[in-house]
Design a protein around this nucleic acid. Structure first.
Lengths: 127, 127
DNA sequence: ATACTATTAGTAATGAGTCTTATTACTGAT
DNA sequence: ATCAGTAATAAGACTCATTACTAATAGTAT
């Protein structure tokens, strides 16, 4: 139950800043390649590990997609929208429905913490 | 625009039958290993390809998870529920909300075809 | 039966993500 | 400021789901 000490490293801050500075939805590798430009010694494992740690702490949001994870600077839960053709990912303008979590918690016996939703379709450019 | 011919092969039927005979949510590799028992010559690529083709035709449903794809015999769209600890996957007792697709189609300019939702939480056994 | 070609078996290749290990560098205590 | 303890790192090997390649096979229309 005791929290284990977490240190503040330059690399962790670089990763956090990189995600927060972007307004798209980069993959772990996107962030890694971006950081490589300014910090040629940063390691891929470091980027992946810090992205996981930061998303566990809630400072960054991990979007679970089937092909590969993407990351999001927004802290509040929200849904996403992906073009089936070109793969573009954007935020969906539909509010997160927390009532579903409560409803399903009662009926299923699970302790539901959250859900994630991805809408699929053709974007204006591809349709 | 012309439909390209699809052949009915023994292997494709084996794959379809295997998925439809199960009431859990097997991965592609689960199906491959199961078929190997009775048909030692079946190839992994064949199983993966046919699962994709069958899900494109709607005879089988592909569940998009971040770690690996799972498959489902049910044809109607529905949501899923995954235990964050043990990974167990089950169907969620909440109806698919097609109204969300229409709503977002109007506001986003996308042509939304569907959405997929996975609830996360601790199952009765793990909580 | 024949011709056409989708599909297959077998295997190599890809790519996201994890793991390993020796080294480095935070952090709290002296 | 120095020191000791140990979390975190760099570099690269590794895992594992999925795809790509290729010569051989087998549906299907004629």
């Amino acid at each position: 139950m005791k929290d284990k000490l977490q240190r503040n490293t330059k690399q962790r801050e670089l990763v956090l800043n990189a995600v927060q500075a972007r307004r798209d939805h980069p993959s772990a590798d996107d962030i890694y390649l971006e950081l490589l430009e300014k910090s040629p010694d940063i390691s891929k494992g470091t980027v992946y590990r810090n992205l996981r740690l930061l998303s566990e702490k809630g400072q960054v949001r991990q979007i679970e997609l089937s092909d590969k994870a993407r990351f999001d600077w927004r802290e509040e839960p929200h849904y996403h929208l992906r073009c089936s053709k070109c793969g573009t990912l954007s935020d969906a303008a539909i509010d997160y429905d927390a009532a579903l979590d409560r409803l399903l918690s009662e009926s299923s016996g699970y302790l539901i913490t959250h859900h994630h939703t991805v809408f699929e379709g053709l974007c204006p450019h591809c349709r």
